[in-house]
């Protein structure tokens, strides 16, 4: 009944054409702009882009924050996921709901909260001044730390959810078995939990890493123009200086990094 391949193709074509024409095609042209200078094909744009220290700083900062957020998410994620999996089912459901709750909330709202918390008159500064730890408020906003915290809060749920589903698939007696055989908790983690949840870790890591790379709102609100990331740099290049060569280059870098992360990490998961 489903042997007619043309019939199948006809059904899938509208979606594929829609995305190819209205999505991939314009994006493709944009990427090609990075390889053009004054209408001629050239790599001069890239050479120029790399030669500017600001661009390099932003690139490495983006990469660093991506890794850092993924890494810290993994550490906190393992601890939290492990505790959640061991809860009794009713409680587990409720906690799980609270973990994924932030995912439903607009990133604008979530990031905005950090202004309230980290601002000059935010609770953290009130506490610091109130306890006499400092005479004047400390500046948290528009620092890398603020961006890091914002990104961590934004993407950690994805890691926790991936790890929870990986841990739920752990053989039930694997951990007690390892303990009985004399493994320490550290050995249980490195020899049992880690290898068996690797795919969940990789999936969560990919989601968090690419999420952090391509986040716009968090660096825009919490980093401003002081702590640029690739996305905010792209916005600035287009809006402030109408520089589409840089925009094409940054877009290419972002897409290559996202696809690269997907491909490389998938390999790692299978190896």
């Amino acid at each position: 009944m489903f042997q007619n391949r043309t019939e199948g193709l006809a059904l899938v074509l509208p979606a594929a054409v829609f995305i190819a024409v209205l999505f991939l095609f314009p994006v493709g042209i944009l990427l090609s702009e990075g390889f053009k200078v004054g209408g001629e094909w050239s790599l001069a744009g890239y050479a120029d882009f790399v030669s500017k220290p600001l661009n390099r700083t932003v690139f490495f900062r983006t990469l660093k924050l991506g890794f850092l957020v993924a890494f810290v998410s993994a550490i906190i994620g393992y601890a939290t996921a492990f505790c959640i999996v061991n809860l009794e089912p009713a409680q587990r459901g409720r906690v799980f709901g609270l973990i994924i709750l932030p995912l439903m909330i607009s990133p604008v709202a979530r990031t905005y909260a950090w202004i309230v918390i980290l601002g000059r008159t935010g609770i953290v500064n009130k506490a610091i001044v109130g306890m006499g730890l400092s005479d004047s408020p400390i500046r948290f906003l528009f620092t890398e730390t603020a961006v890091f915290i914002g990104l961590l809060q934004l993407f950690m749920p994805l890691m926790i959810v991936s790890l929870i589903s990986a841990m739920e698939n752990l053989p039930k007696d694997a951990i007690p078995a390892a303990r009985v055989l004399g493994a320490s908790w550290l050995q249980v983690f490195t020899k049992v939990i880690l290898p068996l949840t690797r795919e969940g870790l990789v999936l969560g890591g990919t989601l968090v890493f690419t999420g952090a790379l391509t986040a716009y709102i968090t660096p825009a609100i919490l980093g401003g123009s002081k702590v640029l990331m690739l996305e905010t740099l792209l916005y600035q290049r287009v809006n402030v200086s109408n520089d589409y060569v840089s925009a094409g280059i940054i877009a290419t870098i972002l897409i290559v990094m996202c696809f690269g992360a997907n491909v490389v990490l998938r390999r790692v998961a299978k190896a």
């Binding site: 199948g8 995305i19 190819a20 999505f23 994006v27 716009y216 877009a251 972002l254 996202c258």
Partner: peptide
């Protein structure tokens, strides 16, 4: 349901908007 020719390519095309960062799409 169907064994479509080029199924893998089509799947990648259809999944692309998740991977390509939104800001690039908007600008393009």
């Amino acid at each position: 349901r169907y064994n479509i020719p080029g199924a893998e390519t089509i799947k990648i095309i259809v999944a692309a908007p998740i991977i390509v960062p939104g800001i690039i799409v908007g600008l393009a």
